[in-house]
Design a protein around this nucleic acid. Structure first.
Lengths: 129, 129
DNA sequence: CGGCATCCTTATGGATACTG
DNA sequence: CAGTATCCATAAGGATGCCG
């Protein structure tokens, strides 16, 4: 943050922006949700995240692993078995992302209604007599 | 959510996913942060979000307005004056997004260290003797 | 099974110019 | 001042095929 005429400014290129963009990943919130109940294999994780592609799941997990949020454990069996779990740091996130998931579910109808209302008023901008 | 072998599945195309993708907007978290202290004009908002372009700020604010998170108030003066503020619904978000901003700032160093460590180990995958 | 590499399409976002 | 409109570069993401 920087000061600008007495007001705080959210600076670009600061490290917290970096973390913020990590957390605003489309899938991260859901991945944390699935992993919060314990280690999960890649395939199971994928099946529980409806619509995610293999590419995106791999990519998201790598990013999270790299940031120290997720632990990747490989069992050298045939066929290979790979389990993902939250690190202590990643587990901290569940308090935040869980709250977001809950809020999303609780307010989805209200938001859908607001959007419908907005669109209706946008389509009929002239004042009716 | 759907059941799949006793495990919850995060379904695609469900309304909460919609809200989730709204919240994972790159800028929303910061916009909520600025607006949480009261109504702010477009220009001031822009100056306090370092690096945001006019296009992205407009786009983000429209999306938030449409979802009922933000109130847009136009004062028909010359030059025009437009003030944005959080609706009660949007104000609820500050509890969530504020926690995320705080967490990001608190853990940015730890995450940067984890990434550096990961990258170093990735560059030197052979076991040293 | 759990990936990676490639190709290709679409979405995102920056820069610029113009307007009420 | 607070936008809208347009163009353009890049990034995100899906589909497919191959591999240890």
């Amino acid at each position: 943050m920087r000061e600008l005429g007495g007001a705080d400014v959210y600076l670009r290129n600061c490290a917290s922006r970096n973390v913020l963009s990590l957390l605003s990943n489309k899938w991260l919130c859901l991945v944390v949700g699935v992993l919060s109940s314990g280690p999960v294999r890649f395939g199971a994780l994928r099946r529980r995240l409806d619509g995610i592609t293999q590419k995106m799941l791999t990519q998201t997990l790598r990013e999270m692993e790299r940031a120290g949020l997720v632990d990747r454990r490989v069992y050298p069996t045939t066929p290979p078995r790979v389990e993902y779990s939250l690190t202590p740091l990643g587990a901290e996130l569940e308090a935040l992302t869980g709250a977001i998931r809950v809020w999303s579910e609780e307010h989805m109808e209200q938001i859908a209604a607001a959007r419908a209302d907005y669109d209706e008023r946008a389509a009929q901008p002239v004042e009716p007599l």
